[in-house]
Simulated assay, not measured.
Amino acid sequence: MHWVYLAIATVFEIAFALCANAAKGFTRLWPSVLTLVIGALGTFFLSLALITLDVGVGYAIWTGLGSVGIVLLGTLLFKERLDWRKVLGIAVVIVGVVGLELSGAAV
């Protein structure tokens, strides 16, 4: 179940970043409120995953996959440039996440 909680937390992490972008430095009320609520929900689900996962592994996977998702959605939604360096970075993160999962750190 910890992987399900971590997946949910990762979706909230991605949504958090997108809402933070829409909040424009917390100058827009509803995107700002949504940013705080989504951030709290993501942290809540991360904490559920960390009951079983090692904190270093869980947090690294959460932030790593969240970062990949944000880069990809930034490319799709905001027409941000995806060059070979970003693709290489995504590949390195994915390899790292797989390595952490294979480490058997979950009890």
Rank of each mutant, 00 (worst) to 15 (best):
W3L: 14
W3H: 11
L6S: 05
L6H: 03
A7G: 11
I8C: 08
I8Q: 02
V11W: 11
V11N: 09
F12L: 02
A15C: 15
A15D: 11
L18C: 03
C19S: 14
N21G: 08
T27S: 15
T27L: 10
R28H: 14
P31E: 07
S32V: 06
S32L: 05
V33C: 12
L36E: 06
I38H: 03
G39A: 10
G39P: 08
G42T: 05
T43C: 06
T43V: 13
F45I: 03
F45C: 00
L46T: 07
L46K: 00
L48S: 01
L48Y: 06
L48H: 05
A49D: 05
A49E: 08
A49Q: 09
A49H: 01
D54T: 10
V55Y: 08
G56I: 04
G58A: 13
A60P: 01
I61W: 01
G64M: 10
G66N: 04
S67I: 11
G69N: 07
I70K: 07
I70C: 00
I70G: 00
V71M: 15
V71T: 14
V71C: 09
G74K: 03
G74L: 00
K79C: 10
R81I: 08
R81S: 13
L82C: 08
D83A: 13
D83L: 09
W84A: 13
V87L: 15
I90P: 05
V92F: 06
V92W: 04
G96E: 05
V98W: 02
L102Y: 09
G104Y: 00
A105V: 01
A106E: 04
A106Q: 04
